[in-house]
């Protein structure tokens, strides 16, 4: 049974290349006015390192069966939180405990290559997803079948339309059975006919994961897949509850 626990997690992005003086003057005071972004800081042991606090004192506990929707403006910290949950960003302070294998799915075409054939891309994408060659070989036929790309799979991907590329990526990505599934901005699919086919697959795919965390702006997708939600603002959790409660709160502002 997978589980994740974050306590007092704070993530600070250092900024090294911005001119200090101008940065201070632009960013101090801007925090109250802007609706987006993390908190800008200028501190650390007397050294004037400026940074952005993308997550601030996050406490979160996820267990088997949790399907969490992350809701918030651009720059509220959703993607950063997903990366912490994946174990990619280890926070500067606070502790993270991850039990289970997280599979981040932030960009479904990650690792795919225009000059490689469809079949080669199934292998590449599969390796990026953490599969072994043997596991990929066992799935190739099913993936090829579901994508409906037929003889195109033997051709380089640059000959595909955008929709066809998405179909292939989607078919590979949803062929796995992740413990902890972390999705950013939904899963792109393709044309209407494929979306219908894909719907069932998305539902099954996300139901099979022990834990799902989904950051998206599409309310119907969030309602369909998630059973709880939290809202982030400037890197802080400002509301938790059911998807509807949090969405109402979010849109109420």
């Amino acid at each position: 049974m997978a589980f994740i626990e974050l306590s007092a997690v704070t993530v600070l992005f250092p900024i090294y290349d911005a001119a200090r003086g101008s940065l201070k003057s632009t960013l101090f005071g801007s925090r109250a006015g802007s609706g987006t972004g993390g908190t800008v800081v200028a501190e650390r042991g007397g050294r004037a390192v400026t940074g952005i606090r993308a997550l601030d004192q996050i406490d979160l506990r996820l267990e088997h069966g949790d399907r969490l929707a992350l809701i918030g403006h651009n720059g509220a910290g959703k993607s950063t939180l997903l990366r912490v949950l994946a174990g990619i960003y280890e926070p500067g302070t606070g502790s993270v405990q991850i039990d289970g294998k997280p599979v981040p799915m932030f960009n479904i075409t990650l690792g795919m290559d225009m000059d490689s054939t469809g079949y080669e891309n199934i292998v590449l994408r599969g390796l990026y997803l953490g599969l072994t060659r043997r596991e990929i070989d066992a799935k190739v036929e099913e993936i090829a079948d579901f994508s409906g790309l037929g003889s195109f799979l033997g051709l380089p991907m640059r000959t595909y339309s955008t929709g066809m590329r998405m179909r292939l990526a989607f078919s590979v990505c949803t062929s796995i059975r992740p413990d902890i599934l972390l999705v950013d901005e939904g899963l792109g699919t393709g044309d209407a006919a494929f979306i219908q086919k894909a719907q069932a697959r998305i539902t099954r795919f996300s139901e099979e994961a022990s834990i799902l965390v989904l950051a998206a702006h599409n309310p119907s997708l969030l309602r369909q897949l998630c059973n709880k939600a939290l809202m982030l603002e400037h890197g802080r959790i400002t509301k938790t509850g059911t998807v509807d409660e949090v969405l109402d709160h979010y849109h109420g502002r």
Partner: peptide
């Protein structure tokens, strides 16, 4: 960089 930020490898 792109891969590092998207993979748990």
């Amino acid at each position: 960089g792109g891969m590092i930020k998207q993979l748990t490898a």
